[in-house]
Amino acid sequence: MAQVLVRAERDAVKRRALLARTIFLLPGLSYITIFMLIPLGFIFFYTFLTRGTYGGVEYIFTLENYTRALDSLYIQILIESILIAASATLLALLIGFPAAYAITKLSSNWQNIFLLLIVLPFWTNFLIRTYAWIVLLNTQGFLNKGLINIGVIDQPLELLYKPGAVILGLLYAYLPLMILPIYSALVRIDPAMREAAINLGASPAQAFRQVTLPLALPGVLVGSIFVFVPSVGNFIVPELLGGGKTVMVGNLIRDQFLKARDWPFGSVLAICMVVMLLLLFFIQARVNKSVLGEKNG
């Protein structure tokens, strides 16, 4: 009898927990369903339809949109986008990791100040910040005028409107998204772990390589994804800093919807992007798991 009561009580507690969980998850889940999953479903459906002459779609089913995406023109644009986004990510990592590491070495007051400074640029509109680079770097801009005035160069450098300028713009825009996750991974590392390594005879370099670095890896992966994903789909930076002379997948998708009035093909390109990014998340999850698994084992 008592056992039955206990079980009933336990079930009631479980039910309440489940109810609470459902209630807490409901807003988030419905948001994702209504504003992401359902529209994504529409986009997927559109990939099988035929382009309407004046925009929209005609309900004639076809797979042609997918075969068109395999054209070398589009593959080449995809590869170039990946290269540009990967370069921005790598540079962000090279700058972001030491920065995050240095911040963890500061007193907690200074840490807060530096973290604030890192997110500060987000308070200004992205478009304006990107335009600022044009003002700085153009042939009549501050940098060139300054360098000419102090006699370093006599002809203005052509810095803008090349893939390099696009990489710079993306790096600038998304660097904070690299620093923050790495920082949060680094601060969580118990200093005792490093001390233990040193006590057991590791040099500081060895302790860094064998203790700090592996434990920071999840932060590095998250930061890399945070920088890579918005970079590869960005179309404002290539347009402004690339002078419209560099085309990335984001521009391509935008043009299909807004210029060519070719919604089905634009949808195919969008779905390809989603699949590619899902793959990336999958790889990240796997790597993450193997790293953490090693630590536990």
């Binding site: 644009i77 521009n251 043009d255 210029k259 060519a260």
Partner: peptide
């Protein structure tokens, strides 16, 4: 341009890319 607007977009992409 009606249906030919695809042709224009494709050429614009080829030129700018």
């Amino acid at each position: 341009l009606g249906k030919a607007s695809s042709l224009y977009t494709r050429i614009a992409t080829e030129v700018t890319a």
